[in-house]
Amino acid sequence: MNDLDKFIKDAVNGDVRAFEQIYKASASFVYNVAWSMLRNEHDAQEATQEVFMKVYKELKNFRFASSFKTWVYRITVNHVLNVRKSQSRYKNHEVMVEDENVIDHISDHKEQNKEDEQEMIMKMLDILDPQQKMCMVLRHLEGLSYQQVAEVTRMNLNTVRTHLKRSRELLIKKFPRKEVIEHEM
């Protein structure tokens, strides 16, 4: 039995310290996916808490045959997409993007701090629909392979590929290279 299996069994029996180890192993993924998708500190924190409360509640039903990491990631993706859906019912979630300026800012590293640059990258992804954005976040920010993205999102492998392709086409179209614009002008 590896450490994680032991932590899971201890956590099922009510050991909070064991659950803390489980939390530490996947908190960064859960929080960053929530933050990237919800784009709000408060919502991301709340979503992270809810995901881990679900994990804690469902831990006794976890079958060791599947990967624990994939199981937690799946709960995260489901929860975050549901929150997005419920948010879009009450407010128009489209974030205003200052179009071409976004990429110019990202490329111009010297004139801005790291935080602004990070924010610009997120704004760039905000133009994508939730499914496309989820695939991009899982692939680029979390470094998951196509197969892993497909398992976590329960999408077909080709659907993942199509989402990534369309996202990138859209981003290239929306944010063309600065030099190209200058050349065209």
Partner: peptide
């Protein structure tokens, strides 16, 4: 690569606030 892959791959993930745990 320059417009999509590099900026996204260089994105630094956020530190998880202690208050969550």
């Amino acid at each position: 690569k320059t417009q999509i892959k590099n900026p996204l791959d260089n994105y630094e993930v956020k530190k998880v606030p202690d208050s969550i745990w």
